[in-house]
């Protein structure tokens, strides 16, 4: 996948790496069990600090998107479960987003359409 980060963005670089990899997975640019560059390698390529990449990778590992071992390096996980931890995190984020949408006058149908469009955009890529 093409991993893009913007050094002028207000979003922290580790967060951009984290978000980009999840977006890559959703769009199919990144496949389950696919190998990823090591922390040092990616830091060299992007000319960023190694700790930045490590922070992004560690977050993805904690969320179950990446796995790493000494022999095989860093890889995308082979399968993903919507486990209890994920469902709770999703509900918390949705709770916040639907609250903001309601304040701005969007009804349930509008939000559903937006979610459906997002799903379609990943399938289209």
């Amino acid at each position: 996948m093409l991993l893009k980060i913007d050094v002028a963005s207000t979003v922290p670089l580790y967060q951009q790496i984290h978000d980009q990899i999840i977006l890559g997975l959703a769009s199919g640019q990144l496949q389950p069990d696919e190998a990823l560059p090591a922390v040092r390698q990616l830091a060299d390529e992007l000319a960023v600090n190694m700790l930045t990449v490590a922070k992004g990778y560690n977050l993805l590992k904690a969320e179950g998107y990446l796995i790493s071992d000494r022999r095989q390096g860093t890889r995308v996980a082979a399968n993903f479960q919507a486990d209890a931890v994920f469902m709770q995190a999703l509900q918390e984020q949705l709770h916040q987003l639907t609250a903001a949408a309601k304040i701005r006058g969007l009804d349930v149908k509008d939000v559903q359409e937006l979610v459906a469009a997002q799903y379609q955009s990943f399938e289209g890529e």
Partner: peptide, 11 residues
Amino acid sequence: TEKVADTQLIL
């Protein structure tokens, strides 16, 4: 200000 890396190509 954008930096791009191709993860497959890097490997």
